[in-house]
Deep mutational scan, measured.
Amino acid sequence: MLDDRARMEAAKKEKVEQILAEFQLQEEDLKKVMRRMQKEMDRGLRLETHEEASVKMLPTYVRSTPEGSEVGDFLSLDLGGTNFRVMLVKVGEGEEGQWSVKTKHQMYSIPEDAMTGTAEMLFDYISECISDFLDKHQMKHKKLPLGFTFSFPVRHEDIDKGILLNWTKGFKASGAEGNNVVGLLRDAIKRRGDFEMDVVAMVNDTVATMISCYYEDHQCEVGMIVGTGCNACYMEEMQNVELVEGDEGRMCVNTEWGAFGDSGELDEFLLEYDRLVDESSANPGQQLYEKLIGGKYMGELVRLVLLRLVDENLLFHGEASEQLRTRGAFETRFVSQVESDTGDRKQIYNILSTLGLRPSTTDCDIVRRACESVSTRAAHMCSAGLAGVINRMRESRSEDVMRITVGVDGSVYKLHPSFKERFHASVRRLTPSCEITFIESEEGSGRGAALVSAVACKKACMLGQ
């Protein structure tokens, strides 16, 4: 009897593995994704193909990295998701002549009506938060230079001027797309009239992360975010950046690689679950690469896999709870928690219980395998993109072996128990001629924006502006 049951459990697990095998990517698959990513990057950089390229390769006008001589107080704003952060950054000489960066910050959550109302409502709310922060720190009387981390696709015309191309991540505030974001912020500050600010720089969160990590390690020339969304930036040779005049030196390019796949480059790798996630998203047909990796989508992918296993009578005796059938019910943090389970399955059992399920031991094991399959594919897909960037940098610099540091931020990278190990191992397999160091950014977005502002202020002083 026991043997029969054991055989049935083994057969069930084997069927589960057959279904989950769809998520496995072979090294040849990853090399294919990497080569296609490089081709799209090239198209994004070139003037004649930029418009139709899915990977936009947006110039950021960040050319210099901090040298350690900029000092002063800077205000930093960070808008990239449902939370908005205001930070005071003091850049100065530390002990023994070292450079020191001290920060104080406060988080504000953005109400739904500000995210989806008008641009005026959104930026009025942001300036209200700045006003509140300055009151708390008794700094209303000071006109501070301000660095703005704005983590949406922007076409820069200068370091302090950028046109919002399109909202992502659930934002829909009308009247912002096609307009200068810094102008919208300046107008809102003017409307309030109770404080003055000098907006000197606007950067993407990947750029802010790279600059913040450069402060720790001067070989950091790539910034990457794996959180709600997924994106990367890197220092490109100016001669390859056709959208900006000049051939000397390097400029940081914001790849906006989340949109890779929007022209069909990933079609052969998309599964039924991916198509369902895409169809029910706020932007169907867009940001397809990001939807395979980002935390906004990972939990939902797992939920759809679990429903398939229920329908195949391989999980929960073929019956799903009402909660499990509800879109968004299986949160991405559950994926991390399930994979963090120590082996007694308590954590998995508790999560499934909150979803109205009474799982068996085998159910718990199957749910864990589903989570591992989805998150491992995410790590491997992400590795193909980064390997594409790094191999490109090595080739354009004609280096036999390139040493490089990548600064990384984002909740999936930082909080998932195995993502970074799987990701690092896969990147290294795909970049055999590179020695890569990964560092995690601390308060990256805010500190990085302030350091970019410090560079901009120093330049302005040198130019006598």
Rank of each mutant, 00 (worst) to 15 (best):
R394V: 08
K102M: 10
G446I: 12
T118R: 11
N313C: 05
S109G: 09
T149N: 15
G223C: 04
E120I: 14
E372Q: 02
K12G: 12
D135C: 01
T82A: 09
E9A: 07
P417L: 10
S127W: 05
C382H: 09
S109Q: 10
Q106P: 00
D274N: 14
M115V: 11
Q18F: 14
T118D: 09
M87H: 09
K420P: 11
N350D: 15
V310A: 05
D262T: 11
A259E: 12
I436V: 10
M37Q: 01
L58W: 11
V91R: 04
N240G: 01
E279Y: 13
T405P: 01
D274C: 05
D217S: 03
R325H: 10
G385R: 02
H218N: 14
V367A: 02
V241A: 07
I110W: 07
T103N: 14
F84K: 01
D135F: 06
S212P: 00
E443C: 15
A425Y: 10
K136T: 08
S411W: 10
G72V: 00
I366N: 03
M34P: 04
V89F: 09
D3H: 02
E157L: 15
W167K: 13
S418E: 10
V389S: 02
V374Y: 02
I404Q: 08
D187Q: 07
V89Y: 04
S69L: 05
D262Q: 09
E265A: 05
L324D: 00
S54K: 13
R36K: 05
V406Y: 00
V406H: 00
W257G: 01
K291W: 07
E14I: 12
H317C: 05
G356D: 09
L430Q: 09
G264I: 01
K140P: 02
L270T: 06
S321F: 09
D278A: 06
H105T: 10
Q106R: 03
G388R: 03
Q38L: 04
R394N: 08
M235V: 06
A425L: 13
V406R: 00
S383Y: 01
E290D: 12
L134W: 02
G178V: 13
M202S: 02
N391A: 11
T149A: 08
M462T: 05
E242Q: 05
L75P: 00
S336C: 15
S336Y: 11
G464M: 15
T209R: 03
R303Y: 03
H105P: 06
L20E: 11
K346S: 08
K169P: 09
D78G: 05
K142P: 03
G147S: 10
S280A: 13
L386A: 03
E236T: 05
E331I: 14
F152H: 10
G446C: 11
A208W: 00
A320P: 15
C233Q: 00
A425Q: 13
G72C: 00
V367G: 01
T118N: 06
E256Q: 07
D194V: 11
H424Q: 11
V86T: 05
E443G: 10
C461W: 15
L146E: 04
M8I: 15
C129A: 06
D42N: 14
T362F: 07
R46T: 15
M87R: 05
M235I: 11
D217A: 08
T82Y: 04
K104D: 08
E245W: 03
Q219Y: 06
R63K: 04
D341N: 02
V310W: 03
D158C: 11
F269D: 04
L314W: 11
D409E: 08
E435I: 13
G328D: 11
E40R: 01
V241E: 01
Y214E: 01
L415V: 09
Y273Q: 07
F269C: 02
D42I: 09
G249S: 04
R369T: 06
P66W: 05
L165E: 09
F84R: 00
T332Y: 10
K296M: 11
G356K: 09
R250G: 05
V200Y: 08
D198R: 00
R428K: 12
E339M: 01
Y289C: 15
R422W: 14
G223M: 01
E312L: 08
A232N: 08
L306A: 01
H380P: 00
V86L: 09
L463W: 10
S131G: 08
K291G: 14
V207G: 03
A370D: 00
D187A: 03
D132W: 03
S54T: 15
G356T: 04
M238S: 05
H380W: 08
S375Y: 04
M121T: 08
D42V: 09
R5T: 13
Q106Y: 06
L184A: 12
K420W: 12
M107R: 07
E27F: 13
I351G: 02
V154N: 03
M238W: 01
H141P: 04
D400H: 01
K56H: 07
V16F: 09
F152C: 09
L45F: 03
C252D: 00
C220T: 12
G193L: 06
E120R: 07
K459S: 12
R191D: 01
K190N: 12
R429N: 15
V91M: 04
G285E: 11
S54A: 09
T60K: 00
T168P: 12
K104H: 05
L306E: 00
G44W: 00
V253C: 02
L47D: 15
D409L: 09
T255P: 14
V455P: 01
L451T: 12
C213Y: 07
N391E: 05
M393Y: 15
M238Y: 08
Y297I: 14
G92L: 08
C382M: 07
I163T: 10
S109V: 11
C233N: 00
R392P: 04
P417S: 12
V203G: 01
D400Y: 07
F150D: 14
S212N: 07
I293C: 14
L292Y: 14
I159R: 12
E157V: 10
V181Y: 13
V203R: 00
E443A: 11
I19W: 08
A21L: 11
F419T: 03
K13S: 15
P153C: 11
T405E: 01
K13D: 14
R392W: 08
K136Q: 09
T362V: 05
A119N: 11
T326C: 09
K172I: 05
Q286D: 11
K420A: 13
V277I: 14
A53L: 03
S411M: 11
M251R: 00
V91E: 02
T405Y: 01
S174V: 04
S263G: 10
Q219A: 15
C230R: 03
G97F: 11
H105D: 09
K15D: 15
E236D: 03
Y289A: 15
S174W: 06
K32N: 10
S212D: 01
M121W: 12
C382L: 10
D187S: 07
R358K: 02
F23H: 03
Q323A: 05
W99C: 06
E279K: 15
L307W: 02
V389Q: 04
L47F: 11
C461M: 15
I163K: 12
K32Y: 02
